[in-house]
């Protein structure tokens, strides 16, 4: 298969169903599909394009299956929601960010910031091992390896010329060396970051 990703069985079942009717009632589409290069691996874009309602003059009698988008890959947002829930639970993170701080004095914000800092720091440290990308002190001159790892180092200022580069370290950077998130129990709604509390 030239396409590295592959559709799941349920997706293929639905896809086969849709393709059957399209080929039966849409000559152009059938011809396109019949050509040798298309028969190899239908790219995902084609799969998504299929359910869009085509001009219905070709098959008005036959009820077209109603367009249902092929479900995207397993949502990677669950882990992000979990992290937000964790930071809210341990550090009142969402409460803090959602509040309008413009009208408060620095001292008030500072007091709240202590609570958030203490809680979130504990939560992060329990789940993520953070390390700086560069271990040198900020403000010192550093010589960077050649070739540069663009993912972990960015150049600012007089960005020109060829490596190896020497410059002043302005920010050490952060890298997550290890991360372990808790497991959500099946049936738990990840979108609820914090339950509403009602005191009886």
């Amino acid at each position: 298969m030239s396409d590295p990703s592959s559709l799941s069985f349920l997706n293929r079942l639905w896809f086969a169903y849709v393709v059957f009717f399209r080929v039966l009632f849409n000559g152009e589409y059938a011809a396109e599909l019949h050509s040798p290069k298309a028969l190899g691996a239908p790219p995902p874009e084609k799969a998504k394009a299929l359910p869009e309602p085509e001009p219905e003059e070709k098959a008005p009698a036959r009820a077209e299956p109603s367009p249902v988008a092929i479900p995207p890959a397993a949502p990677s947002t669950d882990a992000a929601l979990q992290l937000l829930a964790l930071l809210q639970r341990e550090g009142r993170f969402v409460d803090f960010l959602e509040e309008d701080v413009a009208s408060f004095a620095d001292a008030d914000i500072g007091a709240a910031a202590r609570v958030v800092h203490a809680g979130c720091r504990k939560a992060i440290r329990e789940h993520v091992t953070l390390e700086p990308v560069r271990t040198e002190e900020e403000g010192t001159r550093v010589t960077l390896p050649d070739p540069l790892d663009a993912a972990s180092i960015k150049l600012t200022g007089n960005v020109a010329g060829k490596g190896p580069f020497t410059g002043t370290l302005r920010h050490r950077g952060w890298r997550a060396a290890k991360i372990t998130m808790p497991t959500a129990v099946a049936g738990h709604d990840a979108r609820v970051l914090a339950q509403a509390e009602v005191e009886l």
Binding site: R92, E99, D108, I109, A111, A112, V115, E197
Partner: peptide, 16 residues
């Protein structure tokens, strides 16, 4: 320093 947060979602105003 000691900071105690209030219970509602309004954190900044209610932190002691």
């Amino acid at each position: 320093p000691i900071a105690i947060a209030g219970k509602g979602s309004k954190l900044v105003g209610s932190t002691l």
